[in-house]
Design a protein around this nucleic acid. Structure first.
Lengths: 330, 330
DNA sequence: CTGAAAGCGCTTACAG
DNA sequence: CTGAAAGCGCTTACAG
């Protein structure tokens, strides 16, 4: 490995001067600069970022920590997109991303702390204790997507879940639906809860009485969860004519179940999802859904974190707008 | 930050002794050990892995570098699964994974080298020069999935593309199909090429003459690529009765196109894909496809890399078996 | 503008 | 078994 010592020797100046030139700090003569840069290039010098980080206390590495009951979360299309976009945004700003997605986040915690990351992006279902762990170690944290306990003093970026669902329900009401089923995700998820509040608000504004029997909870919000929930809803005493599913996976599961019972979508039952994962436009019938911008989520999470790394201590709550995408399932 | 110096002071021994005890090397008395461990715990000591890495020349970090014309590749379901599984496998063995997926890999190269990674997993379309760059810098590399130029002296893990396709074509022939279309991926991809060879071999063994007009190349192997290819194939002079698509995305695209022309799958045209991404079982008709084991790919890539990090210099070519999954599209 | 020196937090021979 | 010392490759005051 070539070091500044080698460069110093070959260019006839001291290590200090080489260091100053290569890190572009302090002062040096043009003459020295030329010599040093030339030698560095010839030797194909690459600074040792570990040594640098030891002194500057900055690794330029960010941890992306995924946490949820779905495992592994990275390969989940929703989160995969966020990770992808975060990697892109971080790269553009000179940071690299280390990914953690242990089955039990508690296992990774020690490891993550020892990696000397400049900051952490925490995605998925975020637990208060985990956040506190990082804060106690003075590691800046930004939260993404879902929050179990929302009262952190930490920046976070989420979708406007309330409004997204509110719009979707209004749209179903506009279509003339009077009874609308709601497939809820895990009970302790703030995101699903906010969607649920949007649902209630929309009903309330149209003076439609809320009936708890149209709300089904699913701990695991995937295809099967959607199928199970749909089964319950269509066998209800007075089944709804439309269903809002908490996410696209459950929406597709619901459609599958409904079709398998010989019913038509949207003829017998209209379905709306949430997320607009890539697959939703490909599936048949294509899914009416609330689009969330995962690319933006990843980018803003990185941007908020870097703000903190640059010394800001403002706590920002970023709520990204959603958009209702109307397709064939309604 | 608590350092070994603090521990030394508080437990009344030297830094050297503390270091030996904490890194469990060299010799020390039981008495010292107890004192030191107690103090370390009380102070909530976390070793500085940067300092350690500087001396041991080992960061316990692995780079996962994704490279392809599809961008970002991490969010592609096929690769997302490989990354997810690699992260899991690495974690279990005490390594962390840093993800790189620049639009232009050349941009990241310098950065990757400076991050002092112990080794690299290169996934996607791998370019010879990239591999040589790493080798020149003495960074162990394992290749995953696709290889543009196969003559590396590097371990790599791929699917048995030839056999997977061979089986699929045989199965179509068994169903009575005499003319089978083939949707090829990018021309310079070894994986697609191997599938193509499997196709030709299967035809040959049944003495069916090969006809180039049934082979369509697609540079971007996605839904649209599949639609375009299918369009060409069904408007051919004597259209095939079945199509093997180079991957599931193109297969689904092909089905969409065929259905949109008012034709039936599999009635008018049978379709087989390759990969068995999650979506293939959900789509309707569900897709007959060649299943690849992405979880295993990620795990074995990590395992092969760690072998090298542990000093092995054997070059292993790991070809993972595939399995034909028969569903509704044939 | 420049170089010697100290130091980041650790590991590793080495002498006792 | 133990401690002093050197060193990993860099940065950063500081004195000249």
């Amino acid at each position: 490995m070539v070091t500044i010592k080698d460069i110093a020797r070959l260019s006839g100046v001291s290590k200090s001067t080489v260091a100053r030139i290569l890190s572009n700090s302090g002062s040096y003569s043009n003459e020295s600069k030329e010599k040093v840069l030339k030698v560095a290039k010839e030797l194909n010098y690459k600074p040792n970022t570990l040594a640098r980080a030891m002194i500057t206390k900055k690794t330029n590495n960010i941890g992306f920590v995924l946490h949820s009951r779905i495992h592994p979360l990275i390969s989940h299309p929703f989160f995969a997109s966020i990770v992808a976009s975060a990697v892109g945004a971080a790269t553009r700003q000179g940071y690299s991303i280390m990914v953690f997605n242990d089955k039990d986040i508690q296992n990774s915690l020690e490891n993550i702390q020892q990696k000397k990351l400049d900051g952490i992006i925490l995605a998925g279902y975020v637990d208060k204790r985990i956040v506190q762990e990082f804060k106690a170690n003075d590691i800046p944290v930004v939260l993404v997507n879902d929050l179990i306990d929302i009262k952190f003093e930490t920046s976070y970026v989420i979708n406007d879940d309330f409004d997204g669902c509110f719009q979707a329900i209004n749209y179903l009401l506009d279509l003339g639906h009077k009874t609308i089923g709601f497939i809820h995700g895990p009970k302790d998820s703030q995101s699903y809860h906010a969607r649920f509040l949007g649902y209630r608000e929309a009903l309330k504004l149209r003076q439609i009485e809320y009936d708890g029997k149209y709300v089904v909870f699913q701990d695991v919000p995937n295809i099967e969860g959607g199928m199970n929930a749909a089964k319950q809803l269509i066998t209800a005493e007075k089944p709804p004519t439309a269903i809002f599913a908490g996410n696209d996976m459950m929406a597709i599961g619901a459609i599958k179940e409904i079709k398998s019972q010989g019913l038509q979508v949207p003829g017998d039952m209209a379905i709306v999802g949430f997320d607009d994962i890539e697959f939703s436009s490909i599936y048949e019938p294509s899914l009416t859904t609330v689009r969330t911008d995962r690319k933006l989520m990843g980018e803003i999470a990185v941007q908020e974190l870097i703000k903190q790394l640059d010394g800001s201590d403002e706590v920002n709550v970023i709520k990204l707008p959603t958009e209702l995408i109307i397709r064939e399932s309604t």
